[in-house]
């Protein structure tokens, strides 16, 4: 085949692959993580009511400005002590951000930041997260568990211990109190993890 024929043919194949790549098994994130406002009827996402406590743990362990509290890194985590969910006006005007408390170390984590964090967790592996939520997969199969447990390489090192309060807090929330995980309730487990620094 000459180059003149090869280039259009390659483009055609690449285009077809691109279109196909959007189809099989790639459910939109909305379908798995739920709409922005959690709808308990659909049960497609881990509960958002308990998430602020989970978020507190993630903000402390994962969301420092040099780790996941960075605009440049996946699994972006917002929080009072780290990166803030800011408006364009606040970005361009530090005084306005200071006035609004939207500064690192400023006012408490907002509900919008909690929701953004919940969607970060849910959206990093939406299909697998869906399987975990439905009880088809153990939480430890998710990257958000593998990395802090150091089952998978993690630049930030081991942040949770297997079976420790941090891992239980996150698993407990992801699976909504599964039988195989010893958790009383999400808030208690997460509070324990934050208190004990484990």
């Amino acid at each position: 085949m000459t180059m003149r024929r090869l280039i259009p043919a390659s483009l055609l194949v690449a285009g077809a692959l691109g279109v196909l790549g959007c189809e099989p098994g790639s459910e939109p994130i909305e379908a798995l993580c739920g709409p922005f406002e959690y709808d308990p009827e659909t049960q497609t996402a881990p509960d958002s009511d308990d998430f602020p406590k989970v978020s507190s743990l993630l903000e402390r362990r994962c969301g420092t400005l040099d780790c996941h509290g960075s605009l440049a890194r996946p699994l972006r985590i917002y929080g009072a002590g780290g990166l803030r969910l800011f408006t364009l006006e606040e970005y361009n005007d530090a005084a306005l951000a200071q006035e609004n408390g939207t500064v690192s170390g400023g006012s408490g984590t907002t509900s919008a930041e909690h929701e953004a964090n919940r969607r970060s967790i849910c959206g990093i592996e939406p299909e697998l997260t869906g399987e975990v939520i439905r009880g088809e997969l153990p939480p430890e199969e998710l990257m958000v568990m593998k990395k802090p447990l150091l089952i998978e390489r993690h630049k930030g090192g081991a942040l949770f211990q297997t079976g420790g309060p941090g891992a239980v807090c996150l698993s407990c929330w992801l699976r909504s109190f599964p039988d195989d995980i010893d958790c009383q309730d999400v808030v208690t487990e997460c509070q324990k993890a934050i208190r004990d620094n484990l």
């Binding site: 400005l65 040099d66 951000a97 500064v103 690192s104």
Partner: peptide, 25 residues
């Protein structure tokens, strides 16, 4: 420091002026 240093040994990577949504000052 109220949070921990996760991986970056340069204080100046995060601590920059002015205080902003991206920096504690």
């Amino acid at each position: 420091m109220s949070t921990r240093i996760g991986r970056d040994g340069s204080c100046g990577s995060c601590h920059a002026e002015p205080l902003s949504p991206l920096s504690p000052g």
